[in-house]
Amino acid sequence: MKASQKILSLVAGMFALGGTALHAEPVHPDEVVYEDWLVTESLSGEPGDAERGYEVYTSRSQGNCIACHSITALLEDVQWHGTVGPSLDGVGARWEEADLRGIVANAKNLYPDTIMPAFYKSSGFIRPGQRFTMQPAEEPLEPILSAQQIEDVVAYLLTLTEYPE
C-alpha cells in the first residue's frame, strides 16, 4: 500500500469511527475543481508551509521548479537557474493564491501549449511510465507532487512579492 493510500485509509477509518478528523482528505488529482484555471481550496485541506515549499522548489527530486524558472534573490543560494519559463521574481505580487495553485497543479488550463508539466494530474497521458524506470504505468498515476507539496510550493511562491532593485 502506498503512503498516500495509507493516509486515505487512515482518514476514512477516522470518519468510520465517528471521530473528528484532524486532517482533511486530499482532493484526488482527477477531482480537482478548476474555475477556468483557478483552484480556490487547498488541495490537501491544510495550509502550505513556505519553508518546505522552498525545498520543493529547489529539490531535483521534488518540484525541481528551478530547472526552468529563475528567482534573482535565490541566486546567492543556488546557482544555475533555468530560463525556459518566466522569471518568478514578484510572482506572489502579481498572482493570487488560487491562480498559483491552479497553475502549478495544471498550467495547461491557462496556457494550453505550455511546456510546463502538470504537477497534480493522474491520467490522460501518452505512454506513461513509472517515474524514470521506462516501465509502463497504469493510470491513475501518483501525481508528480503531492497535494501538500503543491500547497507548500504555492506558499513559498506567495512570499516572492519583491522585484529586485
Binding site: 544555475w80 533555468g82 525556459v84 511546456i115 501518452i126 505512454r127
Partner: peptide, 28 residues
C-alpha cells in the same frame, strides 16, 4: 510532436520551442 509521459513533453517542446534556453546548467 507527440507529448509523451507524465511530464507531457514532445521533442518539439524543448528542441524546437526552447532551443537556446537553459534547463538548469544544460543549454538546449
Amino acid at each position: 510532436y507527440t507529448r509523451y509521459g507524465q511530464m507531457q513533453l514532445a521533442c518539439a517542446n524543448c528542441h524546437e520551442e526552447n532551443n537556446g534556453q537553459m534547463i538548469r546548467a544544460d543549454h538546449l
